[in-house]
C-alpha cells in the first residue's frame, strides 16, 4: 500500500531559530510526506510521545543552541525505552564536526549541518526509514 511517510519535525530545547526546521518541513511536504510540526520548546519527552501517538516513521530535530549533545541522545534513549526504536531519528543545525561521531554512536542516524540541500535530507529519510 502506497502511504505517505510521516515525519515529526521538532525543535527541542529553548532555541527559537526555526527557519531551518520550517524550510525542511515544507520541503518534506513538497516531497509528499506528512509532516507533523511540533513548534518550539519541546522536551524530549514531548517529542517521543508525539512520535508514538502519530505513529511516525521519522523524527527530525533541529538545534542551533549547542544543546544537541544533551537533547538528541535523550530522544533516542526515550524512544528505545518505549519500544519505539523502529523510528528513524535525524538531526540538524549548528553542530560541530567533532560532535557528530558521538551523536551517531548514540543512535542518531544522520546529522545535517548548515548548507545541506533539503534533497539530501529527503533522500536519506526515504531510503532509511525502517518500516515499509
Amino acid at each position: 500500500m502506497d502511504r505517505p511517510i510521516r515525519v515529526i519535525v521538532a525543535k527541542p530545547g529553548l532555541d527559537g531559530h526555526d527557519r531551518g526546521a520550517k524550510v525542511v518541513a515544507r520541503a518534506l511536504r513538497d516531497a509528499g510526506m506528512e509532516v507533523i510540526y511540533t513548534g518550539l520548546r519541546q522536551t524530549p519527552e514531548q517529542i517521543v510521545e508525539t512520535a508514538i501517538q502519530e505513529d511516525a516513521d521519522c523524527v527530525a530535530m533541529s538545534i542551533l543552541s549547542g544543546a544537541h549533545n544533551h537533547l538528541f541522545p535523550k530522544v533516542v534513549r526515550l524512544l528505545k525505552e518505549k519500544g519505539a526504536d523502529d523510528i528513524l531519528v535525524v538531526g540538524g543545525g549548528v553542530i560541530p564536526e567533532d560532535d557528530i561521531p558521538g551523536l551517531i554512536e548514540a543512535g542518531i542516524a544522520a546529522i545535517f549541518t548548515p548548507g545541506t540541500p533539503t534533497s539530501v535530507t529527503i533522500d536519506f529519510i526515504k531510503s532509511n526509514i525502517k518500516r515499509s
Binding site: 505517505p4 515544507r26 511536504r29 507533523i36 510540526y37 513548534g39 514531548q46 508525539t50 502519530e54
Partner: peptide, 29 residues
C-alpha cells in the same frame, strides 16, 4: 493534504503541547 504533492503539514499539536505527555490523552494528526 496538498493536492499537488500528496504531502501535508499537520500543525495542530503546536497548540496542545502540554497534552502530549498526559497519559490520559491521545492526539492524532
Amino acid at each position: 493534504t496538498s493536492p499537488f504533492t500528496g504531502g501535508a503539514i499537520l500543525g495542530d499539536r503546536v497548540r496542545m503541547t502540554d497534552l502530549s505527555t498526559d497519559p490520559g490523552v491521545f492526539i492524532r494528526s
